[in-house]
């Protein structure tokens, strides 16, 4: 499942780039209840309780930064397990600066596994997009305020 979106924020690229390199700050933009801690410079882990409609559960998540090009690009791999199912996502965040503001273009390739994919997909499909959009919108707001 492909997801994508972009936003423009009145903030220098260096700051936006740094924000997304902080796993705690970045995952704090999830609207669902969560707890995330950094394991080391490249890895983070924690839990997120999320859902749509009836489907709701706690996922154990592990994330890792799989690529960094300062002020240009960040690659993140997210891996979650819960409800007997798996979620794996490869996110690419591309940054560009113009006239003092930053444009962030994000794309993601999301793979669902297990019962969520087999049985729950018709319930989940629309939501993954929304959740991702919500996360980045919250990030934009934070960056704007800060």
């Amino acid at each position: 499942m492909e997801i994508a979106g972009d936003f423009r924020v009145a903030s220098p690229v260096g700051r936006v780039y740094a924000f997304f390199l902080d796993p705690v700050a970045f995952t704090d933009c999830l609207s669902d209840p969560h707890q995330v801690r950094a394991v080391d410079a490249d890895r983070f882990e924690g839990t997120v309780t999320t859902g749509v409609a009836f489907i709701r559960g706690t996922f154990r998540i592990r994330g890792s930064y799989t690529g960094r090009t300062p002020d240009r690009q960040i690659r993140i791999h997210l891996h979650g397990e819960g409800l007997g199912s798996g979620v794996d996502a490869d996110l690419v965040l591309a940054f560009s600066e113009s006239a003092g503001s930053t444009v962030l273009r994000w794309t993601g390739d999301v793979h669902l596994s297990g019962p969520i994919a087999t049985i729950g997909e018709r319930m989940v499909k629309g939501t993954v997009d929304q959740k991702a959009a919500g996360l980045f919108e919250n990030a934009r707001k934070k960056l704007e305020v800060g």
């Binding site: 009836f54 489907i55 559960g57 409800l83 007997g84 319930m123």
Partner: peptide, 19 residues
């Protein structure tokens, strides 16, 4: 959750997708 007929809800609970 409201349980009326439960024909959708109970199925999701059995799958433990709804709790």
């Amino acid at each position: 959750k409201v349980l009326a007929g439960g024909q959708s809800l109970i199925g999701m609970m059995k799958l433990r997708l709804a709790q």
